[in-house]
Simulated assay, not measured.
Amino acid sequence: MSGTLRGGQVAAAAAVHVQMPRSYERRGLLPAPARGNGGHRRSRPRSPLPFATPAGGR
């Protein structure tokens, strides 16, 4: 899937822990990304990243 990012790449681009996008997905704050042939999450690049929150925000 060309033009997509794996979960670790998304987290690194947003400077957050790799579990944060998954947590947001479980809570319904982010849509579930498409999955590649191997079952890995593949997200389309977005700007700004929706889980970039102020410090201390939960």
Rank of each mutant, 00 (worst) to 15 (best):
M1E: 12
S2R: 08
S2Q: 09
S2P: 14
G3T: 08
G3V: 08
G3D: 11
G3N: 09
G3M: 06
L5S: 01
L5A: 03
R6W: 06
R6L: 13
R6F: 09
R6H: 10
G7F: 01
G7Q: 08
G7H: 03
G7W: 00
G7A: 12
G8N: 03
Q9I: 03
Q9N: 04
Q9T: 03
V10A: 06
V10I: 07
A11D: 07
A11R: 00
A11N: 04
A11P: 07
A12N: 00
A13S: 10
A13K: 04
A13E: 13
A14W: 04
A14Y: 00
A15N: 10
A15E: 09
A15I: 04
A15F: 02
V16T: 04
V16E: 03
V16D: 02
H17D: 15
H17F: 01
V18Y: 06
V18A: 09
V18H: 08
Q19H: 08
Q19N: 12
Q19K: 05
M20I: 13
P21H: 00
R22F: 06
R22Q: 13
S23D: 13
S23H: 11
S23R: 12
S23V: 07
Y24A: 14
E25I: 11
E25L: 02
E25K: 04
R26H: 10
R26F: 04
R27A: 13
R27G: 06
R27F: 01
R27P: 14
G28R: 00
L29K: 07
L29N: 08
L30C: 07
L30R: 10
L30Q: 09
L30F: 07
L30P: 13
P31V: 04
P31G: 06
P31T: 07
P31A: 03
A32I: 05
A32T: 15
A32D: 14
P33N: 05
A34C: 08
A34S: 13
R35N: 09
R35W: 02
R35P: 11
R35A: 09
G36K: 00
G36N: 13
G36E: 13
G36L: 08
N37P: 15
N37Y: 02
N37M: 05
N37H: 07
N37D: 14
G38N: 15
G38T: 14
G39F: 03
H40R: 13
H40W: 13
H40Y: 14
R41W: 10
R41P: 10
R41Y: 04
R42W: 07
R42Y: 09
S43K: 03
S43Y: 15
S43T: 12
P45E: 05
R46S: 10
R46P: 10
R46C: 14
R46T: 12
S47K: 06
S47Y: 05
S47H: 10
P48S: 01
P48R: 01
P48H: 00
P48C: 04
P48T: 01
L49G: 04
P50K: 01
P50S: 02
F51M: 11
A52M: 10
A52S: 10
T53W: 12
T53G: 05
P54V: 13
P54F: 02
P54T: 10
A55G: 08
A55Q: 08
A55C: 11
A55P: 15
A55L: 13
G56V: 03
G56L: 02
G56R: 01
G56A: 00
G57C: 12
G57Y: 06
R58H: 11
